[in-house]
């Protein structure tokens, strides 16, 4: 019976896949799309990388909500109880590698953040690299994945969404509307948001990998 059910599901999913492939074939012809409009308006956004332009200018609202989703996920993880203690301390070889790789990851993250204005890169890639640095540190035995003390962690995790909202409110106060940057300021506003977002994404991913409420070291503020 179970086997028969599996086969039926397989057949149905197979049919779905065939139908999707059929649709895909028709979709892949040049049709009107948003790209032309996006590329045409790009000079007004203050960045020359179209993907960053979409993320932080045209669809900034979307990106703000995505940062909120990240924050919500982290809050969920933190509310599920304490993290398991770290792994055992790394041996000599792994420790040597970590010492080499982590600064390199942070440096590359900074580079990607800056280069995102005019070439592939940006807050999400840079944040992912910072998160990876945290994962490497945790695997090498640091119970807190190299993250700062708990109160600082909380502030950094909120920093991305908070900076985004503050910039949005500031542009509102100047009369251009929520998150519509004045062209002269656009580049620096985007860079500010991206820097905060990078830190927030990096901290969120590393803290998510720790997998629970961070254990405060002695002399620190208690749990949340």
């Amino acid at each position: 019976m179970r086997r028969a059910g599996t086969l039926v599901i397989g057949a149905l999913v197979g049919l779905l896949a065939l139908w999707l492939l059929w649709v895909l074939r028709d979709v892949l012809v040049p049709t009107p799309r948003l790209a032309e409009l996006a590329l045409q308006e790009l000079p007004n956004t203050g960045v020359s990388n179209p993907v960053t332009g979409v993320l932080l200018a045209y669809r900034a609202y979307d990106t703000l909500l995505e940062l909120a989703v990240l924050l919500a996920a982290l809050l969920g993880i933190w509310s599920l109880g304490a993290a398991s203690p770290g792994f055992q301390p790394a041996g000599t070889v792994l420790r040597g590698m970590v010492k080499l790789v982590v600064p390199l990851l942070i440096l590359t993250g900074g580079y990607l953040l800056w280069v995102g204005g005019h070439a592939p890169g940006g807050a999400f890639q840079a944040g992912a690299l910072l998160g990876a640095a945290g994962v490497v540190l945790r695997l090498a035995g640091d119970a807190r994945a190299g993250l700062p003390p708990v109160p600082v962690q909380r502030r950094l995790a909120v920093a991305g969404a908070a900076t985004f909202v503050l910039v949005g409110l500031a542009t509102m106060a100047f009369g251009t509307g929520f998150l519509s940057y004045p062209p002269a300021w656009a580049k620096w506003l985007i860079l500010t948001i991206e820097t905060a977002a990078t830190l927030a994404i990096g901290v969120t991913l590393a803290a998510a990998y720790v997998g629970g409420q961070p254990v405060p070291r002695s002399g620190e503020d208690g749990p949340l």
Binding site: L34, A35, L39, V54, R59, T63, E66, F124
Partner: peptide, 18 residues
């Protein structure tokens, strides 16, 4: 088209955290 690229970029990070 940069629009789907941007969606994938944020999608990956959101998928990881979810």
């Amino acid at each position: 088209d940069p629009v789907p690229h941007a969606m994938v970029l944020t999608g990956i990070v959101v998928a990881v955290s979810a």
